[in-house]
Amino acid sequence: MNFFELAWSILPALLRGTVVTLEITGISISIGFILGILLALGRIYGNKSIYIVATTYVEVIRGTPLLTQLFLLYFGLPSIGIMLSPFLAAIIGMGLNSGAYQAEYFRGAIQAVKSGQMMAARSVGMNKFKAVRYIILPQMLRLVIPSWSNELIYLVKYSSLAYMIQAPELMAQGKVIAAKNFRTFEVFIVVAFIYLVIVLILSKILDILEKRIRIPGLQTQAV
């Protein structure tokens, strides 16, 4: 059959894989979000030991490949008796990884919020916690949108690495199909196309979101 017939016939299987891809991405970015905020706040407002721990974590994660981190979780942990399923290893690995990068974006965005804001918040009697929660974070979240959108798109693309630890996402489905029909190149053209479509749609949605949340006068660039 020709290329289009092939593409049509493999689409259902690929879409099953796509669902897993999106699940992995969604869960990982959420884990990363919570971890990232904690790390960022720790680095800015925490005491010396918290700062050191957080900074070390961020530097180490950012200094090593995601693939290595996934391998450590999936192939390495069994050495000390911890067996993770591919899906679990994928979301933990990517979540921990994304957390380190999001920490940096949040940190940059917090620092971009004018220092006067914190001073003003304290001057009306808010303690540090309240000031961060009601004044700093809301502004920071708006400033960080471009970087965060970038991170989401990045995760969609790099979820493909979960294939290497045997997670049944889009890449894996592609490989399974190719192993059966030997038309690897064409299969992966379709896979590439699916990623392209996801990325395009996601970018558009994030764009619209950014415009909706914009506060007049408050720039949406993190610096």
Binding site: F185, F188, L196, V199
Partner: peptide, 21 residues
């Protein structure tokens, strides 16, 4: 746009298997 939107892994496969095709 295309080279930024397609995952690196997919690009690798395309070039590797594509050349053979």
């Amino acid at each position: 746009k295309v080279f930024r939107a397609i995952p690196a892994l997919v690009l690798l496969f395309l070039f590797f298997f594509g050349s053979a095709s």
